[in-house]
Design a protein around this nucleic acid. Structure first.
Lengths: 189, 189
DNA sequence: TCTCTAAACTAACAAGCGTTAGTTTTTGAA
DNA sequence: TTCAAAAACTAACGCTTGTTAGTTTAGAGA
C-alpha cells in the first residue's frame, strides 16, 4: 500500500479523533498533539480545520454516489441491487471506519460544502427508494411502506462504522452476506 | 399536560439545540438566546452545561433500563419480547425525540456519569442478546449470528429519532407494527 | 402599600479557541 | 558538502467559551 503523505496522515488522524469526540470537541491542539507536533505546524499542510472535515466527508460521499450509480444502472433484479447496496456500504465502511463517523455525525458542520453534501445524500436516497419501489411493483419485495424499508436498511448500514471495528476477526464478505440475509429474509423461522 | 418549569424549559430547549448541532457546538449563549434571555441568567436555574446533558441522557437511559427489565421478566415468547422492545423504542423516542439525539451522539461528553451510562447501556444490550439467544435455542428465531441480529435491530431503533419527526402524520402504533414486521419477517416475498 | 423572592440583568474573569507571522531545523538531491 | 524546500518551531493575535459576582426588575402575598 502506498505510503501516506503528511497531509493524508493529518486527515486520517483527524478522522480518528472526530470519531471519538466529534468535530466540534476536537481542537487543533488535540490533533497536533496526536501527531506529536505543535498546532501551528499543521498549517504547513492544511488550510483550516473546516477543510479537513470537508476532505473527509466529501471523498466518502462521492464514493457512495459512484457506487449507487453503478448499481442503479446494472441489469440485475431489485433484490440483487439491494444486496449490492449492502456490499457497497460494508466495503466503503471497512475502508473508512473513522471517516464514516464524521459523515454520519458531523455533516451539519460543513459550511461551503453543506449544500453539495445534502444534494448527494438526497440523490442517493431517491435512487435507493426507486429500487425498493420497483422491487415491490415487480413482486420481488413484500408489499409494505418503501420508506420504512429504506429507513430500516439505511439505519443499519449507516451504523456499520460502529460495529465493524469491534469485529475485526469477522470476514468482510461474510458480514455482507449475513447482513443481507438478516435484512432481506428477516429473522423469523 | 403539566406546565413546564423554567428549568425543564431550559433543558428541553437545550435538547433541541443539541440535536441540531451536537452538545459541543452549542454555546450557553446560543441556548440563552433561544430562550430570549442572557447566558448568565441560565445559572439561576441550572448548575452547568454538563448538568443539562446529564439530565437529558440519564433520564432516558433509565427509562430504557426499566422497560427492558419488565420485558425481560415477562412471560411471553421471545419473538413477542422483541416486538415489545420495538414498541418500547418507538414509545420512548416519540416522547423524547430531541433527547434521543443526545443519548445517541453525545454520551461520550458525559463526565461524572459516563461510567454509569455505559453500565446501563451494557446491561441493556446483554439482556437484548439473551432474548435473541433464547429465541434461537427454542427455534423461534432463525439460526444466525445473535450479534448481527441485535446490531441490525438496534441500529434501526436508535435511528428512530431522526425519522419519527419527519413522519408526524404516521400513527405511532402503526409504525411500531410495520417496523416489527419489517425487522422480524424481512422484506422478501 | 410593603416586602420578599424568583428571575432577569450588566460586567467581567481566566482559559481555550483557530489561525497568522516570522524563524529555525531537518532532509534529501545535486 | 551545499543549499533549497519541507516541516517543524515560538510567540502572539483577536475572539469565544463557561461561569461568577453583584445588581436590578417584576410580580405575588401579607
Amino acid at each position: 500500500m502506498r505510503q501516506e503523505t503528511r497531509k493524508e496522515e493529518i486527515i486520517s488522524t483527524a478522522a480518528k479523533l472526530f470519531k471519538e469526540k466529534g468535530y466540534s470537541a476536537v481542537t487543533m491542539r488535540d490533533l497536533a498533539s496526536a501527531l506529536g507536533i505543535k498546532a501551528a505546524s499543521l498549517y504547513n499542510h492544511i488550510n483550516s480545520k473546516q477543510d479537513i472535515l470537508k476532505s473527509i466527508i466529501i471523498a466518502i460521499a462521492e464514493k457512495f454516489t459512484e457506487g449507487m450509480q453503478s448499481i442503479s444502472d446494472s441489469d440485475i433484479s431489485n433484490i440483487s441491487k439491494l444486496e449490492s447496496i449492502v456490499a457497497l456500504h460494508v466495503q466503503i465502511t471497512a475502508n473508512n471506519t473513522n471517516g464514516m463517523a464524521s459523515l454520519n455525525n458531523d455533516w451539519m458542520h460543513l459550511e461551503d460544502q453543506l449544500e453539495y453534501y445534502l444534494k448527494l445524500r438526497n440523490d442517493y436516497e431517491n435512487k435507493f427508494l426507486d429500487i425498493i419501489r420497483e422491487g415491490i411493483s415487480k413482486s420481488e419485495i413484500r408489499q409494505s411502506n418503501p420508506e420504512v424499508i429504506m429507513f430500516s436498511m439505511l439505519s443499519t448500514l449507516r451504523s456499520l462504522y460502529l460495529w465493524i471495528p469491534k469485529k475485526e476477526d469477522l470476514n468482510i464478505n461474510e458480514l455482507a452476506l449475513s447482513l443481507s440475509d438478516t435484512l432481506i429474509n428477516g429473522i423469523n423461522t
